[in-house]
Computed example of a mutant assay.
Amino acid sequence: MGSALSRTKARAALLGELEEAMRRSSAQGVLYGQAVANVAGIANSDLECMDILYLEGRVAAGRLAEVTGLTTGAITGVVDRLEKAGLVRRERDETDRRKVFIAVVPETAMKIGQLYVPMQQAMEKVFSNYSDEELRLLLRFANEGYKSILAATTTLKGLIDTPPEKRPALKLKLTKRPRQT
């Protein structure tokens, strides 16, 4: 019995460490992206939209709004700014001229991509310490984690359409931190 309890506690501690490490990594990724956006002279949210465009390929503005959760009006502003910066272009559909797609300008995107080289090199160094089997496990973890976070995001976004009085209460207890001397 004591052995099962100690395994449960050990697993809980391991899961806590893993969650903390993932949160640190996620936060650092956001901060790195912010630094890239600052160097590129664009907003971090615009950079994230550009990354989604890069991953999705040429898409309609409505699809970009759907994927990001932004309104179509907000997406118009993002696309306007990215187009002005030379990072994306609007392209008319060949068969239906009323349809407009947003596409990344590869030459300009490559310039921003160069800002990610130090991070990519650092990660390649980390990955070089893992076997192919371990990399497949990490890939499975990343893909399953992405799907889980996507589902959780969809659930959270559902609260936006819920009137504030019907939303679950957030129990935040804000306290002042003691001043560091």
Rank of each mutant, 00 (worst) to 15 (best):
Q120W: 10
A85H: 07
S26P: 00
A60N: 05
D80T: 14
E107N: 06
A169C: 03
V126E: 06
G29P: 05
K157N: 06
P118D: 13
L170P: 00
R63H: 09
E17P: 00
V59K: 09
Y130P: 01
Y54C: 07
M123G: 00
A169F: 04
R7W: 11
T71A: 13
D51I: 13
L135K: 12
L64Q: 03
L138S: 02
T155C: 05
L55E: 10
A27M: 11
E107W: 03
F141S: 11
G41R: 09
A35V: 11
K173C: 02
K9F: 15
I42G: 01
V105H: 00
D132Q: 13
G73M: 12
G57F: 04
D132K: 13
T108H: 13
L156V: 13
E134C: 02
I75N: 03
V105Y: 00
I102Q: 00
R92K: 15
A142E: 11
G16E: 11
K176V: 14
G113F: 09
R11A: 10
M1I: 04
I52M: 10
S25G: 07
R23N: 12
V67P: 01
R90A: 08
R89N: 04
V104L: 05
E144I: 08
E165M: 08
L47Q: 05
L139Q: 06
E91H: 04
R11T: 12
E20L: 13
G33Y: 01
L156E: 08
V79H: 02
I112G: 00
G16A: 11
G113A: 10
P163C: 03
V78K: 13
R89I: 04
G57S: 05
L150W: 01
K84E: 15
M1W: 04
G33V: 02
E107T: 12
A37S: 09
S148F: 10
D93C: 10
D132S: 13
T175A: 14
A60C: 07
Q34P: 00
G41A: 11
V104S: 04
T154F: 10
L64S: 03
L139F: 04
K147N: 07
K125V: 08
M1N: 05
S45H: 09
Y54N: 09
E66T: 03
R140A: 14
K166L: 15
E56D: 03
A103S: 14
Y130I: 06
A21G: 01
E56P: 00
T76D: 12
V100T: 15
A13K: 12
Y116M: 09
R58L: 08
I102M: 08
Q114E: 15
L159Y: 15
A10I: 11
A142Q: 11
Q114R: 15
L159V: 05
L47R: 00
P118I: 13
P118M: 14
V100I: 15
L47G: 01
K9A: 15
A85S: 13
L138N: 03
L115K: 05
R179M: 08
G62K: 10
R81K: 09
R90M: 10
A142T: 11
K147A: 14
E91F: 02
E134N: 03
V36I: 15
L87D: 00
A74Q: 15
D96E: 11
V67R: 12
I149A: 08
Y130L: 15
A4D: 13
K125M: 07
L87E: 05
L31T: 04
C49L: 12
G57H: 03
S148C: 07
A65K: 04
Y32A: 14
K166D: 14
T181Q: 08
I149M: 05
L137H: 04
